[in-house]
Design a protein around this nucleic acid. Structure first.
Lengths: 223, 223
DNA sequence: AAATATTTTTAGACTTATCTAAAAATATTT
DNA sequence: AAATATTTTTAGATAAGTCTAAAAATATTT
């Protein structure tokens, strides 16, 4: 259907579009797919001819419905494979991305559907990101960054902003994994670092950098 | 490491080498990888430079140890993925090949090892073909073609010669699947078709064409 | 608004893997 | 062994995706 490379461009543009709602410019795409601006211009022309996106010279690009469909399909495959790798093959959450990056391009609708069924129709991947449904629908959990919670408020770790391997390893080492319940004890005036309550005998100090990159589902708040 | 295409050529040459022990010629490879002789010459030169095979103009090719290693590794991956598709995702044995043809090129040693473990270190794929071990060792069951059995002899279906989808579908429809026990009742003088005994109330007439393409593990013989 | 900086595009080249058509080598017939 | 047929290789072209360097357009600064 569409090539490995085309799918990667579409996915990258889709993700940029998610974050910005303005038209996506050449340099941003180049950065995202790890290539040069000149290459992006070439590819973008090609994708435009195939009606996968709208392109006007010097004005950036915007996905068409079909381009978006392909992008979401690719995201769906990526996240299903990540889930497979994590839940069935015991890969840790910081190692699944690179392999899923390859697996997401395997062509077979039946494979995706059967994988989905085998995994029990999961709603989230190992990082808490939503897995798009077959029809492209994405159920976004209304998560907030941990730094948005106030003292005394509780939440359950449900996702991450930063997906880098170093960050994920750091969380893993500190047992700050998905599903963990947290209560904000104190927020430092000095550096916005946060003391959190985990259980009777476990408190922890998190830097603002860490706190901003953790997504939580807000729980019942206490004063 | 090695490209999709390189792996496919090596696998094809390996399989041809299995069947023939003479040097493998250009046309045979072209047929096998579905390309033209000229393309094969180009690729074979490239693989020769990379020391994956020995090539002398007009004399055909022969894999080096490294070339064989890569080929067997690819076969291993192919058959593990086929097993996954069949036993975990419920793909029928006539549909697994094409998807495994893509999956076999995913690069990750850890993935292969974990998949192997997840599947319980299977010895055979859904067609009865042996799955090479991590070290490249291949445990070949000493199977014989069903037409080599004499009247009264028994065997268990353990593999197929013909891997085509039509043939596999035909066997499936007639419940001639792996593990099935068979006894030869009568071999026709006229067309070498064979009457087989399956159980008290089930006999079956198999054409010579079918019988030659079924591999069995010989059982105890009766007169 | 002119000058400068940044971004984007064009032009032309490179790589991988493929192809067709023709030439060269090898095999088979007669 | 000469003639014919087949196989293999070479030569030159094509497509996908990439690159560098220069030109063109847009944005920012002064």
């Amino acid at each position: 259907m569409y090539s490995f490379t085309e799918e990667n461009y579409l996915k990258a543009i889709y993700k940029l579009q998610e974050q910005s709602d303005a038209n996506i410019n050449t340099n941003a795409i180049a950065l995202s797919v790890q290539t040069k601006a000149a290459s992006v211009t070439d590819m973008v022309k090609k994708l435009s001819e195939k009606k996968l996106l709208k392109y006007e010279k010097y004005k950036g690009v915007e996905l068409t419905a079909e381009g978006k469909r392909v992008a979401i399909e690719t995201v769906r495959k990526h996240r299903l494979w990540e889930t497979f790798l994590h839940t069935k093959l015991n890969f840790s959450w910081d190692t699944v991305h690179d392999i899923a990056e390859q697996l997401e391009h395997i062509q077979s609708q039946e494979l995706v559907d059967k994988l989905d069924e085998f995994l029990g129709f999961p709603k989230h991947d190992p990082h808490g990101d939503p897995i798009p449904a077959r029809d492209g629908e994405i159920q976004r959990g209304n998560f907030v960054q941990l730094n948005e919670l106030k003292t005394g408020e509780e939440g359950v770790i449900s996702g991450v902003v930063n997906h880098s391997s170093v960050f994920l390893k750091h969380l893993e080492k500190n047992e700050l994994t998905l599903g963990k319940k947290i209560r904000i004890m104190e927020i430092s005036e000095f550096d916005q670092s946060v003391q959190i309550w985990l259980n009777e005998n476990s408190k922890m100090q998190l830097s603002n950098e860490v706190v901003r990159n953790i997504l939580v589902k807000k729980g019942i708040s206490y004063e």
